[in-house]
């Protein structure tokens, strides 16, 4: 199963984030811009980290921001934010974060195959640094093997 589409609107490059909350909000803004979620989803992703800690920093330099399925999710979607300056999330081993991937899924069951695809991509430990260095959305799509188009199904794109 391929990744959800990653349109240009879901990618933000060299974002200036002061802290992890700003970095997660940037991933949320990109999800909302692509039509995958409402604006409120960003706060849900921050809530998860406040509740459970920085476990979303799943590999060195990489945060996989996500929240539970809920009314804020309009369509399955991912977003990618690269940070102009690495930001600490509070993870003992994988800080600082250079790349934030936002993930929105509609059901807890339906997402496993597309997330498995993310696992395939990031099992190459050079990919995070390559994404962090990318200067154009097309480069990031190519690194992830994500499709560009496809209506996210959520309306405003």
């Amino acid at each position: 199963m391929p990744l959800p589409p990653l349109p240009d609107s879901a990618i933000a490059i060299a974002v200036d984030a002061d802290d992890w909350r700003a970095a997660v909000h940037a991933a949320g803004s990109a999800l909302a811009a692509s039509g995958a979620t409402t604006d409120a989803y960003a706060d849900r992703m921050v809530d998860v980290i406040e509740e459970y800690g920085a476990y979303v920093v799943v590999a060195p330099g990489l945060a996989l921001a996500h929240a539970r399925p809920g009314p804020e999710v309009l369509a399955e979607g991912i977003s990618v934010v690269t940070l102009a300056h690495p930001v600490a999330f509070g993870h003992a081993h994988n800080d600082p974060v250079q790349v934030v991937v936002g993930l929105a899924v509609r059901t807890a069951e339906g997402h496993v195959a597309s997330v498995a695809e993310l696992a395939n991509v990031f099992n190459d430990d050079a990919v995070v640094a390559s994404i962090a260095r990318a200067t154009a959305p097309g480069e990031i799509r190519a690194l992830l093997g994500a499709p560009s188009a496809g209506d996210a199904g959520g309306g405003a794109a």
Partner: peptide, 19 residues
């Protein structure tokens, strides 16, 4: 296990199966 049962636990499941 992850906090909300989507995303990170699915990645861990995929890579545990690989391991």
């Amino acid at each position: 296990v992850c906090g909300v049962g989507i995303g990170t636990s699915a990645i861990l499941k995929t890579n545990a199966e690989r391991a």
